[in-house]
């Protein structure tokens, strides 16, 4: 099959990330992700498609604290799609690992298969107080109990950008699609774009000597590319 001319990808500059978690909240607000009670939080049931992972190592004064925003890597060789018994998740022609909620049967194979633990399961129907329902995003489906979910690279924004480009009778340009986390980042550590276009900013950064992919040895070929000055050792 001929490869599509769009392969969506993201770069995250860890040297710029300060772990403020604005991206986490932007994602939650954009994608209608609810919050949980403190009790549920202790059971690990917070859903954060974009989670900032903090790692602490070393001793005073050589302490190291690192921040790593982890989201769905939209792998070229995803582990999650292969285990889905009903085809609810699949890799689309533009490289997105898509999730069709109404098709999901809630078996949770994918949440287990994902080596990045980027997938979440709705153990309960997501709830908001009546007042806060007003701030739900009409462009994003509110998931129900019993389905798996994860980062979509803000597919609603991709759709909107394509729609706009078609209206203006032009091709998509670099920078047309800006996911919520990229848009909000205070230090502008993130970029989103087309990896298949070798001139795009993300493609250029992906060739940087600072670039690396998370758990690359697994062969998943992630399309989220991290940048770091210091060598990143996952076992660290």
């Amino acid at each position: 099959m001929e490869k599509a001319k769009i392969q969506w990808g993201m770069t995250i500059d860890l040297d710029l990330c300060i772990g403020c978690q604005a991206c986490t909240l932007a994602c939650k607000q954009e994608n209608n992700i609810s919050f949980v009670s403190q009790k549920q939080a202790k059971m690990g049931r917070i859903i954060e498609w974009n989670q900032v992972i903090h790692t602490v190592k070393g001793e005073v004064p050589y302490t190291k604290l690192r921040f790593l925003p982890r989201l769905c890597n939209h792998c070229e060789q995803p582990a999650c799609t292969k285990v889905c018994p009903v085809g609810a998740t699949y890799k689309n022609p533009e490289g997105l690992v898509a999730q069709i909620y109404t098709r999901c049967i809630g078996c949770r194979f994918c949440t287990v298969a994902c080596p990045y633990t980027a997938r979440y399961f709705n153990w309960y129907t997501p709830e908001w107080p009546e007042e806060m329902k007003k701030s739900l995003n009409p462009d994003v489906y509110v998931r129900t109990k019993g389905v798996a979910e994860k980062c979509t690279f803000c597919s609603q924004r991709i759709r909107a950008a394509k729609d706009k480009a078609k209206d203006e009778e032009r091709e998509l340009r670099d920078g047309d699609v800006v996911p919520a986390c990229v848009e909000i980042c205070p230090t502008k550590a993130r970029l989103f774009g087309n990896l298949a276009d070798s001139e795009s900013r993300v493609a250029k950064l992906s060739r940087s000597p600072r670039a690396f992919r998370l758990l690359a040895h697994l062969g998943t070929q992630p399309k989220v590319i991290y940048l770091s000055e210091r060598a990143w050792n996952e076992s660290e």
Partner: peptide
Amino acid sequence: GVCPRGQAALQSLY
């Protein structure tokens, strides 16, 4: 850019 406080402000409104 917006910080987490700014992003969450809708939860103050609502």
